[in-house]
């Protein structure tokens, strides 16, 4: 079966600064992968490159075996795909717009997810609390049938109860053969869900390891991640 993601020799510059370099990364299908790195390490940039928001890169990116931008976009569901939605729209309207623009969007799934996450169909986006906006983003992202899901810091600023509901949603709604990549700089938010972790530091991938391997050595994933930062202070 083709890999969910295959990246070779990826490099990316912006404003004359090297943001990412020499990235080689392969992810199999059917896994939940944690993308770990300090604030500003390049996690979001990597997701933007995979999804197609960022386009001026060196190297090769393929998702589920396809490489051109429109094909990749059909295989990837990125949590940022709601950027630009009219804030006056209601939650229910969001589903209509998504259906028009994305043929793989499942309105029935979205309605169930919205209910699970306690989102009111009639609420306007601009009136949603930050937590509810994040929940809406998650519901939208998971309602598409994609091969690769990219969640960028989905639990940022989320309280414990909401996080539990969101974790449940992720488990329930990710298709079996799909791969899900979650970026977070607070590892403990997601660590019991992860099959493997990918650590980004110094503009490149410094480690890719199975969660079980790390724990078998008696180390928590959080400690493993922090070991890359030695005695440095980070967020």
């Amino acid at each position: 079966m083709t890999e969910a993601l295959a990246i070779q020799g990826l490099g990316y510059r912006r404003n004359q600064k090297q943001i990412l370099k020499d990235i080689n990364l392969t992810l199999p299908t059917g896994q939940i992968v944690g993308l770990l790195g300090a604030n500003g390490a390049g996690k979001t940039t990597l997701m933007r490159l995979i999804a197609g928001s960022a386009i001026n890169f060196r190297g090769a990116i393929s998702v589920a075996g396809v490489t051109t931008a429109p094909q990749r976009k059909a295989q990837v569901s990125f949590s940022a795909q709601m950027d630009g939605f009219n804030p006056s729209w209601r939650v229910g309207q969001v589903a209509d717009v998504m259906t028009a623009l994305f043929p793989d969007f499942r309105t029935a799934d979205f309605l169930q997810l919205a209910q699970l996450l306690a989102l009111d169909q009639k609420q306007r986006i601009k009136r949603l609390s930050k937590g509810n906006q994040r929940k809406l983003q998650l519901a939208v992202t998971l309602s598409r049938r994609a091969s690769l899901y990219l969640l960028d810091e989905p639990f940022d600023g989320i309280d414990v109860m909401t996080r539990k509901a969101m974790l449940s949603s992720i488990l329930r709604w990710t298709p079996e053969q799909a791969t899900l990549v979650i970026s977070d700089h607070h590892v403990s938010d997601i660590d019991q869900l992860l099959d493997q972790v990918v650590v980004i530091k110094d503009q490149t991938v410094v480690a890719q390891e199975a969660a079980d391997t790390i724990r078998t050595q008696g180390q928590s994933i959080e400690a493993y991640f922090e070991s890359f930062y030695g005695g440095e202070q980070h967020d």
Binding site: A51, S53, P70, K73, A74, Q81, M82, D83, G84
Partner: peptide, 16 residues
Amino acid sequence: EQVWVQNRWRLVPLAD
């Protein structure tokens, strides 16, 4: 102009 720089349009699976 918003179409060129917003994710809601550029992430749509359609040739630019």
